[in-house]
């Protein structure tokens, strides 16, 4: 599952914009720092998720790379 670490997210919404499969929604809850944290809504559409299910290496990762706050993790890849 993709996780957005609420303590790190600054609500820039880049993940929502960058995802080619619109996995993320902009969210409705504010974090303790006062930022609107996006939510993972359509994880089944995630390119990397589907590749890993087929035993392939992840290839997209645009959200993880683009996130300026290093807030997005994916537990499938052994992230904490």
């Amino acid at each position: 599952m993709k996780l957005i670490k609420r303590e790190y997210c600054k609500g820039c919404q880049i993940c929502v914009w960058v995802c080619p499969k619109t996995v993320y929604d902009e969210g409705s809850e504010f974090s303790d720092m006062g930022y609107l944290v996006p939510t993972v809504e359509r994880y089944d559409d995630c390119i990397d998720h589907n590749r890993i299910k087929k035993g392939l290496k992840q290839a997209c990762e645009l959200c993880i790379l683009s996130c300026p706050d290093q807030a997005i993790r994916d537990d499938l890849y052994g992230d904490e």
């Binding site: 600054k10 609500g11 820039c12 919404q13 880049i14 930022y35 993880i64 790379l65 683009s66 996130c67 300026p68 706050d69 290093q70």
Partner: peptide, 11 residues
């Protein structure tokens, strides 16, 4: 700051 590209470059 929120949305700052330095974080992206760092990643």
């Amino acid at each position: 700051c929120p949305g700052c590209g330095i974080g992206t470059t760092m990643s």
